[in-house]
Computed example of a mutant assay.
Amino acid sequence: MIDKINLFKLGLKKDTLELFNEEYKEYFLGRVTLEHKHTYRVITENGEVLGRVSGKFNYEAFGTEDYPAVGDWVVLDRDSDKNGEAIIHKVLPRMSSLSRKVAGTRSDEQIIATNVDTVFICMALNNDFNIRRLERYISVVWESGANPRIILTKSDLCEDIELRVAQVEEVAIGIDIHVVCALEEEGIDEIADVIGVNDTVTFIGSSGIGKSTLINALLGEEKMLVNEIRESDHKGKHTTTHRELIKLSDGGVVIDTPGMRELQIYSVDFDASFKDVEELAEQCRFVDCKHKTEPGCAVKNAVNDGTLSSERFKSYEKLKRELWIMEKRKKFNERRAERKKNIKKFSRKS
Rank of each mutant, 00 (worst) to 15 (best):
D77F: 01
A298W: 04
H234F: 12
R243N: 14
V119N: 04
H89M: 02
L12P: 00
K330Y: 07
E169A: 15
A61V: 03
F129I: 00
R132P: 00
K345A: 10
N6K: 09
H178G: 05
H238M: 10
R336N: 12
E45G: 00
P148S: 05
S273Q: 08
K4R: 14
D81H: 05
D199Y: 09
G259S: 05
I2Y: 10
C284Y: 04
R230S: 14
W324C: 08
I131M: 08
E60Q: 11
R41H: 04
I121P: 02
E170P: 01
L225A: 13
S350N: 14
S54W: 06
W142N: 11
L323V: 06
K25L: 02
L125A: 02
D305Y: 08
I246A: 04
G210F: 06
I215L: 11
N46M: 11
L219T: 07
F332S: 10
N216C: 07
G145S: 01
N301W: 04
N301C: 07
K9D: 10
A217Y: 08
G208R: 07
S144G: 06
S107E: 03
F120A: 03
L163E: 15
Y40K: 02
N58A: 12
E317P: 00
V194W: 05
F57W: 04
S310K: 15
V53M: 06
R164E: 14
D176M: 10
I161P: 03
K318L: 15
E109M: 11
I325F: 11
K349N: 11
R136S: 05
G63M: 12
N58L: 14
E170G: 01
G296E: 09
A192K: 15
G174K: 08
S97F: 04
K341D: 10
P68H: 02
G220S: 07
F346I: 12
F62Q: 14
D250H: 11
F62G: 10
K320M: 09
R94C: 08
G251S: 12
K154E: 05
V179N: 07
E311W: 11
E311Q: 15
V140I: 15
L280G: 09
H238P: 01
I215V: 14
D269E: 08
L17F: 06
D72S: 01
R336C: 05
E190Y: 02
D269S: 11
K314T: 09
G174F: 07
D276L: 07
G208T: 06
F20K: 00
N333R: 15
K328V: 09
